[in-house]
Design a binder for these strands. Structure first.
Lengths: 239, 239
DNA sequence: GAGTGGTCTAGACCACGAG
DNA sequence: TCGTGGTCTAGACCACTCA
């Protein structure tokens, strides 16, 4: 027997897919819906959280719950197929960047293969589509590999793109989790919504780690795509 | 100002990482913890849900909350690097399989490029490590490509492995979401915990879709790894 | 059967958004 | 200011686990 929140979620899901509730439309308030389904507000909210996780409903604090536009998911393209992080996304996105020099975070010294507290250039990206944030990226570049780091994001983009050709390996680790409180606030998503967390480490032909990127994407509006092609003469003989 | 559930989660997280709460140990009951932190049970449970999502705490219905063993995450290896789904995981896993012939689900006819309701061989895997489920996989193979489908899983494994060499492309789409009620029950996870959802489509050299796989992995105990290597003479000139 | 977590209620109060 | 969602309370009742 399905729980009440699943029954409510199923009903609303059907109303949305059948067009009874149109895209962009505002749902009745949570109090009204709770009355209609004769449940408490907490139960109704957990039902909406399910739909939110499926990308069908968007909650806007102080304003209401809205039926999401037909799912226009952002797709992150993996495998280093794109020259830089932000162009790895399918849609043109507005983005803001902030560049600072920081000491290497402890959790990164191993993957970056640098001594602790060594100087790094940190680039913090937030990508937007319209008003709604679509991504959050922390990119770390070894300081000596980006010698004359200009404070402008565009120039960073160029200099990072220059590093691309000698890349020999890109390793991307993907996991699903709930967002931290800070991430939820930045991405304007509910703390109950899953995020896609990507850790990308790029290595050049000399075996040095050129770049480490931590990306956080809201699960309801983003996914990642990895395409592997096999050459006809190539055989993945081992591993 | 952090919310109460985050304060509680932070405190418990610190007690775990400092060894004050040891791995495998049972936490006090939710009622006791709620009293200690002077919060309601609902608030305390939402704090535990955060830790659960981080893979630090495991809830067992009717038994208690337990500190998870030092994180031994399952890693799914992408890129078709492994000959078959189950060997794509890092740890040796016990798995059970069920093979049935089904009509093509509507959401798969496009990716499999087969007419609607055409016969497919469906293989349903559940992988376990000890008692706890670690993965859920639906694999669909076009019926005419697996002509003499034996009912035994091991033989399926062999026949699928035979298909490997002529593969030309593996496309894997990864997303993060909350589990369906059914998935949560099968994987023995809370409905509030994020899952990693992978859709893998394998194409052979003739351009035919050989296999479609839908994998669901619990976010707290699994992640996916994609490694891309660049040949020295190869250049990803476009796209 | 005793104790545990899972679900749910009927409120309260706060934070945000738009007029 | 008013209506909205966000957080929280102090319970209730049910389902599960284990002795």
């Amino acid at each position: 027997m399905p729980s009440r929140r699943h029954f409510i979620a199923d009903d609303l899901r059907h109303r949305i897919s059948s067009g009874q509730l149109k895209a962009g439309e505002r749902l009745p308030s949570e109090a009204q819906l709770a009355t209609r389904y004769t449940v408490s507000t907490a139960t109704l909210r957990s039902a909406l959280a399910l739909l939110q996780g499926e990308g069908l409903v968007e909650k806007i604090h102080g304003s209401g719950n809205f039926v999401r536009r037909p799912l226009c998911k952002i797709t992150y393209t993996g495998g280093g197929g794109a020259p830089a992080t932000w162009t790895a996304f399918s849609a043109p996105l507005r983005m803001t960047a902030r560049t600072t020099n920081v000491a290497a975070p402890s959790h990164l010294t191993t993957v970056l293969n640098v001594p602790p507290h060594s100087a790094l250039t940190e680039v913090l990206f937030t990508t937007h589509e319209g008003k709604t944030p679509h991504g959050l990226a922390h990119i770390y570049v070894s300081h000596d590999l980006a010698p004359a780091t200009p404070p402008l994001a565009e120039q960073i983009a160029v200099s990072l793109a220059d590093f691309r050709p000698p890349l020999s390996e890109v390793q991307e680790r993907v996991s699903a989790r709930l967002p931290t409180q800070e991430e939820a606030a930045t991405l304007r998503i509910s703390p109950t919504l899953a995020v896609l967390s990507l850790t990308r480490v790029s290595t050049d032909t000399a075996g040095r780690v050129v770049e480490a990127a931590l990306l956080v994407l809201p699960g309801d509006r983003a996914d990642a795509l990895f395409t592997t092609r096999f050459m006809s003469e190539e055989r993945g003989s081992k591993e």
